[in-house]
Nucleic acid binder design. Structure first.
Lengths: 183, 183
DNA sequence: CAGATCATGTAACCTGTTACATGATTTC
DNA sequence: GAAATCATGTAACAGGTTACATGATCTG
């Protein structure tokens, strides 16, 4: 399960709670993997059971105690093993493309409206990557001693940008083709 | 649920069995949506319950009887409604990118080997689209009276090709960047 | 003689989402 | 006074995958 290995990855940076880990997902890898707290908490607990993590409780008065998870040697070994194992290409599952595939059953204007909506969404996402996400990486590079890590973070961001650019171009080309349709 | 609407879409072409529908998935839209027979059969049965389909049995001696499903007026209306409803952008979920993100914990050569493997897989997929899939669409256009439909099928194929080209380029660029790393 | 094709399904399992439950403190 | 932040979970549900069950005919 990839979620477990993403958690292991972040825990090599420093010991953290489930809540902290969720923020790492939301701030860095959300654009290719995310998870809910309701999934993270039980998963951490299972990983502890597998010996990949240890847990330390920090008592608090006004809130639930913080459960801080630390990666073990066994956890590091498992992460290494997983990182080295060849990854399959994940199949695409996109309901939007079903709508395009059966677009012959829609009026021209309805198809165009679908495409324009999608174009706008991908343009927004692209802007977010180029501004917000890139900014966060730049910030993390400055004086955190994570230059080598940040190099790899940027590679995944490049992929996100290329992905969104691909969508934007395809939407624009497709809109033009449909507009050119007679009838 | 998108599966139901993909099934409705194919059933506007002609009445079919679950087995026939599975072949349509495998031959045309598998690169952005697929389904197992074990999922298709119960789904067709539910759709009949919703009044979107009717079913007719063709008796056979040596095999299970063919259950041929026909789309109803209500099914056509539901498909129209769904096709017109705005579609969200589907979030990416790619474990391979987790491996790249945490690539700082791997040796340079191990990262390169991951990337070269992925590059090869995407190049294969791209070739498959440009040869096999495009060939099938061309074949279906010739004298089947589905010229208008095939125009939209090609649009989704264009998207698949652009997607794979994006991956191929990114893999090549990323391999070059990592090869240039000192240390 | 092995494997693909035709043709139907059920059951268990895995992963992920949504809703529910609690509650003080800080910020706008 | 409302919303966000911190901090933990459980339970129900949805969707999809894998394994199991049956079995004749056709193809290489």
């Amino acid at each position: 399960m990839s979620l477990k290995h993403a958690l292991l990855g972040f825990l090599t940076y420093q010991p953290m709670t489930g809540y902290d880990l969720k923020q790492h997902f939301d701030r860095s890898i959300y654009y290719f993997w995310n998870a809910n707290l309701s999934q993270i908490y039980p998963t951490l607990s299972k990983m502890k059971g597998e010996g990949w993590l240890t847990m330390e409780v920090e008592l608090q008065d006004d809130r639930p105690n913080r459960k801080v998870y630390h990666i073990t040697t066994s956890g590091r070994e498992e992460l290494q093993r997983w990182l080295q194992a060849p990854a399959d290409v994940v199949p695409v599952r996109d309901a939007f493309l079903i709508k395009i595939f059966f677009g012959g059953q829609l009026d021209k204007e309805e198809s165009l409206s679908q495409l324009r909506h999608h174009l706008a969404l991908h343009q927004e996402q692209l802007a977010d990557y180029q501004e917000t996400v890139m900014g966060r990486i730049q910030h993390d590079i400055e004086g955190t001693g994570m230059e080598r890590e940040a190099f790899f973070w940027e590679l995944t961001l490049d992929r996100g940008i290329k992905y969104e650019q691909g969508w934007v171009e395809w939407c624009q080309e497709t809109i033009a083709k449909i507009e050119a349709l007679t009838g």
